[in-house]
Simulated scan of single mutants.
Amino acid sequence: MPCRGHSTKTEEPFWSEEWKKAGLKATQAPSTSVMQKVLFIETGMGCDQHGSREEHGATKAAIRACRNAIEFNSIPCIQDIVPGGRAGMKIHLKLGIPEEANGVDLDQVRAVFPYGQLLPIEVVNGGLTFQSGRVVEQLGDEKDLAVIVLACVTVGY
């Protein structure tokens, strides 16, 4: 399952224009960085009913899984708990992606996280594929394969 971890684009992707204007974006943690203390773990699932696309078939499902894991949480005291506040928060992301999926653009997935330091993303075989019952050529479908990706987001410092 090919995963592209570094963008060849000149500008890194942002989740939204609002985040771009506010300067919200997680950074890549230094390669020597490790998580000393786990504070919480969030899980999510994302589905792309047109996940058989040639390029980055499971990317949309992975983004949805990450959003599902983090979007209903608010931890206002993180500023007081983590040394360095939100910027010092470490994030470990583990994605379960079906082997049949055509890969994930990890730069797009990283853009989902508004702050913190992302440790290297761990990708394992997992998730699910199933027949969606339709092929929509205008959306890039080559077959009726839908993709489900699972995400585990561990936050600590």
Rank of each mutant, 00 (worst) to 15 (best):
D141L: 10
D141E: 10
T8R: 13
G133V: 09
H50R: 10
I75C: 07
Q108R: 13
L145P: 01
G51L: 07
N125L: 14
Q138N: 15
A146G: 10
L24T: 01
K25W: 04
K60D: 15
Q79I: 15
S74R: 10
C152I: 10
P2R: 11
E18L: 06
E142M: 10
V153G: 10
Q138A: 15
A22E: 11
D107G: 12
P76E: 14
F130Q: 02
F72I: 06
S16G: 07
E142Y: 04
E54N: 13
E99F: 03
C3N: 11
C66Q: 01
V34E: 08
L39N: 07
G85C: 05
D80K: 11
H56Q: 08
I148Y: 12
D141Q: 08
T59L: 07
Q28A: 11
P76T: 12
E11K: 13
G57Q: 10
T129A: 07
M89H: 00
D80P: 00
G140V: 04
G5V: 00
H50N: 14
E71M: 10
K20Q: 13
K25I: 02
D80Y: 13
H56P: 00
E12C: 01
V82A: 12
G156C: 10
L128H: 14
L118N: 00
N125E: 13
K60P: 01
P30Q: 06
P83M: 09
G96M: 02
T10W: 14
G84R: 00
G51Y: 07
K9S: 12
A87C: 09
Q138H: 14
D105H: 08
Q49S: 11
P98A: 06
Q138G: 13
G88D: 00
V123S: 01
E12V: 04
D144E: 08
A29T: 04
M35L: 14
H6A: 01
S74T: 09
G84C: 06
D80I: 03
A22S: 12
G57S: 13
V34I: 12
I148K: 13
T32Q: 04
E137R: 14
I41E: 06
V109E: 03
P13H: 08
Q28W: 06
P13L: 03
G57Y: 05
S74A: 13
V109G: 01
K21D: 07
V109L: 04
L145K: 08
A101E: 05
I63H: 04
